Simulated scan of single mutants.
Amino acid sequence: MAHFDERIGIVPCKTEWGQWWQTVDEVYIEINSSSQLKAKEVKCAITPKHIRVEIKGNLIFEGDFCEPVHADEALWTLEDKCLIRICLSKAHNTAAHCWPSLLQGKYQADPYTFDEMQKKLTLQRFQLENPGMDFSGASMTGNYHGGGPQLPS
């Protein structure tokens, strides 16, 4: 059986250095380098609330996460000598915890992208709650703030 993300794709938030996206459980960061890199030229420091990434001594980004992560479970890899992938495990892993930005005040998803992220997390939540059902062709409409469709008051 294909993994959930492989069936429905990702909803990326583009940045000047690459992109980031999320699932219910994790946040993924991809950093593109215009030059060939060696792993020792990449410095990635991750704490539960903060990240700092440097390439060849140049700061790529630094800041506090929107929500805490499990820093001891964080993983980064260098692929093809030019793509850095970082995987962060969310401390709060529910559809209600859709990150509006990667860092506090930085790399915010535009309203359309954020809505699409919330829809994807809601679909993933339904998939997790209903194993065996295929939601890959499902479409959703409505307001997804808070991890699910909201009923009018």
Score class of each variant (00 low, 15 high):
29 I>T: 09
31 I>G: 00
31 I>Q: 02
32 N>H: 10
33 S>L: 08
34 S>H: 10
35 S>Q: 12
37 L>M: 14
38 K>G: 04
39 A>L: 14
40 K>N: 10
43 K>Q: 13
45 A>V: 12
47 T>S: 14
48 P>K: 07
48 P>Y: 02
49 K>G: 04
54 E>R: 00
54 E>Y: 04
55 I>A: 04
57 G>R: 01
59 L>E: 14
60 I>P: 06
60 I>L: 11
60 I>T: 14
64 D>R: 04
64 D>Y: 14
65 F>H: 02
67 E>G: 00
68 P>F: 05
68 P>N: 08
71 A>Y: 02
71 A>E: 10
72 D>R: 07
73 E>S: 11
73 E>Q: 06
73 E>C: 07
74 A>C: 07
75 L>T: 08
84 I>H: 06
84 I>A: 02
84 I>F: 09
84 I>M: 07
86 I>E: 04
86 I>Q: 02
87 C>D: 09
87 C>V: 13
88 L>R: 01
90 K>T: 01
90 K>P: 00
91 A>M: 09
91 A>E: 07
94 T>R: 07
94 T>S: 09
95 A>T: 07
96 A>Q: 13
96 A>I: 12
97 H>G: 03
97 H>A: 12
98 C>N: 11
98 C>P: 05
98 C>R: 09
99 W>L: 10
100 P>R: 05
102 L>T: 00
102 L>R: 00
103 L>G: 01
105 G>E: 00
105 G>R: 02
106 K>W: 05
106 K>L: 05
106 K>G: 03
106 K>M: 06
106 K>A: 01
106 K>Q: 12
108 Q>G: 13
109 A>Q: 14
109 A>F: 11
112 Y>I: 09
113 T>D: 00
113 T>L: 05
113 T>Q: 01
114 F>Y: 15
114 F>V: 01
114 F>L: 14
115 D>I: 04
116 E>I: 02
117 M>H: 14
118 Q>R: 15
118 Q>D: 03
120 K>N: 07
120 K>R: 15
121 L>K: 06
122 T>N: 03
123 L>H: 09
123 L>T: 09
124 Q>K: 10
125 R>Y: 11
125 R>I: 00
